[in-house]
Measured scan of single mutants.
Amino acid sequence: RTAFSSEQLARLKREFNENRYLTERRRQQLSSELGLNEAQIKIWFQNKRA
């Protein structure tokens, strides 16, 4: 289980509010910017949509 920092969570929530689905390219960008792997971001979005 991933423990996200408050900064990472704030960024993910802001991104989710703008778009509930990420393109592969956007997921790669977020992964690089947040220091998370793409799978972690993908799962976070899946869980948030559920």
Rank of each mutant, 00 (worst) to 15 (best):
1 R>M: 14
1 R>Q: 14
1 R>L: 14
2 T>G: 13
2 T>Y: 10
2 T>H: 13
2 T>P: 14
2 T>A: 10
2 T>M: 13
3 A>C: 15
3 A>F: 11
3 A>G: 12
3 A>S: 12
3 A>V: 12
3 A>K: 13
4 F>D: 03
4 F>Y: 07
4 F>V: 06
4 F>S: 03
4 F>C: 05
4 F>W: 05
5 S>A: 03
5 S>R: 04
5 S>G: 05
5 S>P: 03
5 S>V: 03
5 S>I: 03
5 S>K: 04
6 S>F: 10
6 S>C: 15
6 S>I: 09
6 S>Y: 10
6 S>P: 15
6 S>H: 11
6 S>D: 14
7 E>P: 04
7 E>C: 08
7 E>T: 08
7 E>A: 07
8 Q>R: 01
8 Q>S: 03
9 L>W: 05
9 L>G: 02
9 L>N: 05
9 L>H: 05
10 A>V: 07
10 A>D: 11
10 A>Y: 05
11 R>T: 07
11 R>E: 06
11 R>D: 03
11 R>Q: 07
11 R>G: 07
11 R>S: 06
11 R>Y: 06
12 L>W: 01
12 L>P: 01
12 L>N: 00
12 L>R: 00
12 L>S: 00
12 L>D: 00
12 L>M: 05
12 L>I: 02
13 K>N: 15
13 K>F: 12
13 K>M: 15
14 R>Q: 14
14 R>I: 10
14 R>C: 13
14 R>Y: 10
14 R>L: 10
14 R>W: 10
14 R>M: 12
14 R>F: 09
15 E>K: 02
15 E>F: 04
15 E>H: 03
15 E>Y: 04
15 E>C: 04
15 E>V: 05
16 F>D: 01
16 F>Y: 10
16 F>V: 02
16 F>E: 01
17 N>M: 11
17 N>G: 09
17 N>C: 11
17 N>S: 11
18 E>C: 11
18 E>H: 08
18 E>Q: 09
18 E>K: 13
18 E>P: 00
18 E>V: 07
19 N>V: 04
19 N>R: 06
19 N>E: 04
19 N>Q: 05
20 R>W: 09
20 R>N: 09
20 R>V: 06
20 R>H: 11
20 R>Y: 06
20 R>L: 03
21 Y>V: 11
21 Y>H: 10
21 Y>S: 06
21 Y>M: 07
21 Y>G: 04
21 Y>N: 09
22 L>W: 03
22 L>R: 01
22 L>Q: 02
23 T>A: 04
23 T>H: 05
23 T>I: 02
23 T>F: 02
23 T>V: 03
24 E>T: 13
24 E>Y: 07
24 E>S: 14
24 E>F: 07
24 E>V: 14
25 R>G: 11
25 R>K: 14
26 R>D: 05
26 R>T: 06
26 R>K: 11
26 R>I: 06
26 R>P: 01
27 R>Y: 11
27 R>A: 15
27 R>P: 02
27 R>Q: 12
27 R>D: 01
28 Q>C: 09
28 Q>I: 10
28 Q>E: 09
28 Q>M: 10
30 L>M: 04
30 L>C: 02
30 L>N: 00
30 L>V: 02
31 S>D: 00
31 S>M: 05
31 S>F: 03
31 S>V: 07
31 S>L: 03
31 S>K: 03
32 S>T: 12
32 S>C: 09
32 S>E: 14
32 S>Q: 14
32 S>L: 14
32 S>D: 12
32 S>V: 15
32 S>F: 13
32 S>P: 01
33 E>R: 03
33 E>G: 02
33 E>N: 03
33 E>D: 07
33 E>S: 04
33 E>M: 05
34 L>I: 08
34 L>E: 01
34 L>G: 00
34 L>S: 03
34 L>P: 00
34 L>N: 00
34 L>W: 02
34 L>D: 00
35 G>P: 00
35 G>S: 06
35 G>L: 05
36 L>Y: 01
36 L>F: 02
36 L>E: 01
37 N>W: 05
37 N>T: 15
37 N>C: 08
37 N>E: 14
38 E>K: 04
38 E>I: 08
38 E>L: 05
38 E>R: 03
38 E>A: 08
38 E>M: 06
38 E>S: 07
38 E>V: 09
39 A>Y: 13
39 A>N: 13
39 A>Q: 13
39 A>R: 10
39 A>W: 15
39 A>D: 15
39 A>P: 03
39 A>V: 12
40 Q>K: 06
40 Q>C: 14
40 Q>M: 12
40 Q>V: 15
41 I>A: 00
42 K>Q: 15
42 K>G: 12
42 K>M: 15
43 I>H: 11
43 I>A: 12
43 I>E: 15
44 W>D: 01
44 W>Q: 01
45 F>R: 00
45 F>A: 00
45 F>D: 01
46 Q>R: 11
46 Q>D: 14
46 Q>I: 10
46 Q>H: 10
46 Q>V: 07
46 Q>G: 06
47 N>A: 11
47 N>F: 10
47 N>H: 11
47 N>G: 06
47 N>T: 10
48 K>Q: 15
48 K>I: 08
48 K>P: 04
48 K>N: 10
48 K>A: 15
49 R>D: 07
49 R>Q: 10
49 R>E: 08
49 R>P: 03
50 A>T: 08
50 A>P: 04
